[in-house]
């Protein structure tokens, strides 16, 4: 296990390097000159040249890339054109907002999805199974923005149960410590504030969770059906074990590898794909941050935002890979 983990960490290096290279290449492939963007169309050629030199843009691309890499490694993500402040300082609060939202959404997706899938497989071809799978089909087909608007209309506007915009009420005093507000409010012992933050999370996280829930439910069902047919399930029955335990303990652990793969992929997609949800719900996350940056053509921010999302995506899958080994002893670490 240790040797596998080390190997897996070593394998991360080329993946991460490749990732930075791609992000770097994409930004450089975009037509237009950054200096021109910064200085405006009325800039003199000398000014552009000077800025190019000071930005290092007159160097060959590989030198630029290594400079870029050096900066990233030292924690320097560049400076925002829009606000003229270091991106590294701005990005965390946004990222934390997205992580909090995605995390809650993923918990909903995993708990609901896995249970729905298990029950569907267990009670195959029952009304319960058909209902769950039809709902799941609707879930994957539902456009997020439509669902989000529907939620806001029903639960905020009509029923007035839940807030529909933002991470917290306008008048509130959450002290950002970790910027994960659920944790911050608990650290401060402000239970009322915790409840307020949680209420803000409900609608966007449900909207965000819809697709992953449906996908996880379908994967769980098919994986469980396969496992429930196997010989060792029959052995467990022959021992006199209860069906509930056979399903939840015996079968689930075996069925979990493909489910885990889907969870990993969906988590990555959630982090990156939260833009739509964040826009609808005014959620100040990384998605909204990049969205705004795109509108201002703030290339360094776009670049860093993409890099951070890609990095998280890689890390999530790295963790999933390590978890495979914990779940299935047969996975040889080579």
């Amino acid at each position: 296990m240790l040797s596998y983990s080390i190997k897996r960490v070593l394998m991360l290096i080329p993946v991460l390097l490749g990732m930075t290279l791609i992000v770097f290449a994409i930004i450089h492939a975009i037509p237009g000159n950054p200096a021109l963007t910064i200085l405006g169309t009325k800039a003199t050629p000398e000014a552009i040249q000077n800025l190019n030199r000071s930005l290092g843009l007159d160097q060959p691309w590989y030198i630029q890339y290594f400079t870029y890499l050096k900066h990233i490694l030292s924690g320097d993500l560049g400076t925002s054109i829009q606000t003229n402040t270091p991106i590294a300082n701005q990005i965390w609060p946004h990222l934390a907002a997205t992580i909090e939202l995605s995390f809650v959404a993923m918990i909903i997706a995993v708990v609901v999805g896995i249970n729905a899938g298990i029950i569907s497989a267990w009670k195959k071809n029952s009304v319960l199974d058909y209902t769950a799978m039809i709902v799941a089909l609707i879930g994957v087909s539902m456009p997020i923005f439509w669902l989000g608007l529907l939620e806001q209309w029903a639960f905020s506007v009509k029923l007035n149960w839940l807030p529909s915009i933002g991470r917290m009420d306008i008048i509130s005093n959450v002290q950002p410590i970790t910027n994960l507000y659920l944790i911050d409010t608990l650290l401060e012992g402000q239970l009322d504030q915790f409840w307020m933050v949680l209420r803000h999370l409900i609608l966007p996280s449900i909207a965000l969770a819809t697709i992953p829930t449906a996908i996880i439910a379908r994967m769980t069902r098919s994986s469980m059906l396969e496992v429930l047919k196997s010989d060792y399930i029959r052995t467990a029955k022959a021992k006199g074990q209860r069906m509930f335990w056979i399903v939840y303990k015996y079968a689930l652990k075996n069925a979990f590898i493909p489910i885990l793969t889907v969870i990993g992929l969906q988590t990555g997609l959630l982090l990156g794909g939260a833009i739509l949800t964040e826009t609808i719900f005014g959620w100040p996350g990384i998605g909204l941050y990049i969205y705004n940056a795109i509108q201002y053509r703030d290339y360094p921010v776009i670049q860093s935002g993409i890099l951070v999302i890609a990095f998280i995506f890689v890390m999530v899958n790295f963790i999933v890979d390590l978890l495979y080994g914990l779940i299935d002893p047969r996975i040889k670490y080579r």
Partner: peptide, 16 residues
């Protein structure tokens, strides 16, 4: 009443 089966390779749960 206990039972054993034909396929010893697949009759035991691989992850326990």
């Amino acid at each position: 009443i206990a039972m054993i089966f034909q396929e010893p390779m697949t009759s035991l749960n691989p992850v326990f």
